[in-house]
Nucleic acid binder design. Sequence first.
DNA 1: CTGAAAGCGCTTACAG
DNA 2: CTGAAAGCGCTTACAG
Lengths: 338, 338
Amino acid sequence: MKPTIKMIAEQTGVSTATVSLVLNNRPGVSEETRKRVKETITKLNYFPKRSASQLARKQTGNIGFIIWEDHFSEIEMFYSQCFLGMELAARDSDYYILLTTVKLDFKIPSNLPRFLRYDDVDGVVLAGRVPHNLVSMLEKRKIPFVLLDYELPGKNHHKVLVDNFQGAYTAVQELANSGRKNIGFIGGSSDHPSIKERYRAYLAANHDLGLLSDENQKDYVYARNKEITPEIGRDGIRKLLTGDIPLDAVFCANDTLALGALDELKRQKIDVPGKIAIVGFDDIYAGRYHAPPLSTVRVPKVELGKEAYKLLVEVINNPKQISQTRTISVDCLCRETS
Amino acid sequence: MKPTIKMIAEQTGVSTATVSLVLNNRPGVSEETRKRVKETITKLNYFPKRSASQLARKQTGNIGFIIWEDHFSEIEMFYSQCFLGMELAARDSDYYILLTTVKLDFKIPSNLPRFLRYDDVDGVVLAGRVPHNLVSMLEKRKIPFVLLDYELPGKNHHKVLVDNFQGAYTAVQELANSGRKNIGFIGGSSDHPSIKERYRAYLAANHDLGLLSDENQKDYVYARNKEITPEIGRDGIRKLLTGDIPLDAVFCANDTLALGALDELKRQKIDVPGKIAIVGFDDIYAGRYHAPPLSTVRVPKVELGKEAYKLLVEVINNPKQISQTRTISVDCLCRETS
DNA sequence: CTGAAAGCGCTTACAG
DNA sequence: CTGAAAGCGCTTACAG
């Protein structure tokens, strides 16, 4: 029979109140008593029942993790890794994490995740692009939340971001340092803030390094505003190559695009990095195992998740805390395509 | 103030017991009363508090989803999709799913997932390769569980499997139907039952179709017993090509291998599928967007997860149910590499 | 520092 | 068919 707090109390010869104080590391118990309680806890291998303490404490002990369905299932492992980071961080605490996906055409209340509909979470992390009406709803219901790798323009929210600007800037800088002078850009999905940032940094770096003149800038840029696939990368490099411009490097807004570009270059038998260097962004699995391995900007995805978790817990414990942004630094990882 | 069952009872003019019966769709309430209760529930937008009913019911309402850390983070989206299927299925019911990863060198109790240590799940799904001592522990503690895409040799467990044999057999058959006569095999990680099955089917199909003689069989097979990467695929095709044997097709044990092989063929400028056809297995995202798109055996991952969920719920409701295997059929998806 | 007791919000025999 | 009441296993004022 599973031990209860009552059994611990009886065995130790104290009240359940005292046991509870010990369990939760709270003051008001003599060292001597505390020690004896702990001993019987160990002896009987006791642990408190979650649902009981939740009920008494009026908490759920859960954190929600919400992600756009397409991001979770089709794109690279990016957000799964973030989730893993959250899970790892949560292991040191008491929260369970409830992962669910949403569609972008989000209707309230029919599409509301169960844990939101039934008030089963103490807070929520929203990873990547999410429906804006969902965010508004969380604000309205005053549910603590943190945005992960996403932001809404003109809004103050708690968020954890990748330093996209610095990452992209560094990438272009590294290309320039290795002697490249004519650096193209392949982008896409410009409604995603991250991609936009990377583009801004590309322009800024080129400007700062005195590489691109304003007038030929547009010949060096290819961007389609739709979901990113390798196809866009292939189209992009093709377009840049037929552009009748000198070109010795391309910075791609992410690895998926870079992989597509590399594939097309291989098909056209253009030497990489001999003739053209390619650098991506994100450091996805497929890039690591590509032949040749893709140079990229490494994003610490697990750490991103951990940070989001930590921030959310702080917000839960202090809901009126003024909103903040935590920006995680990234490194350029020079492998064999640059 | 959030409504409770007591408020519903008072407003309707019945007891909380009656409200509870209505909530759980249980008999013993007149249609008239049931209707009135439901009305006030809707009016007050009431829903029962999970922790309270869990406590009273002595259930947790949670299901655990356990997966090897490397599988979750490094390999293709396979198991994430299975998880998604589970999540989708769970939405129609009342369970929350707790996802956690484990390492393969698993120590009890230090590495035990929290939800297992604290008895916070009613059952568990184990996806892909998992530590065997974990499985033994679940058996010993009589926790209901289902294996997903994995099995332990010589053991009876509830499990949901892919029809690897039929899938691989069909793939070879299709290659033969399109005129290929000399079909190689690239495998790896032969301690994984699925890969082994696919290899068995490859041999059986060749035998049944009268393609390979027993003596030259081994010249057509390349398999390394380590974690599968594109690298092994590249090595494999290189090895087969230098084997001084006629070769017009290769069946790869999964898409990752196939992608590696395709890459090497492109580098060697060997026409696919003109000279050599390639077929993989799994239907991963990267294969779909490869140029040319990879022919493969499509595995319905979401359905796999849904089925595992359904089976587990059945087992939870009837723990002594005799163990069973559900095998999910797969189709050969002929795209442009065959 | 410690204990008796109420309370968290449900479910489930049991009696009528 | 319906209600009063006990019970699930914790936490938290409150009194001493």
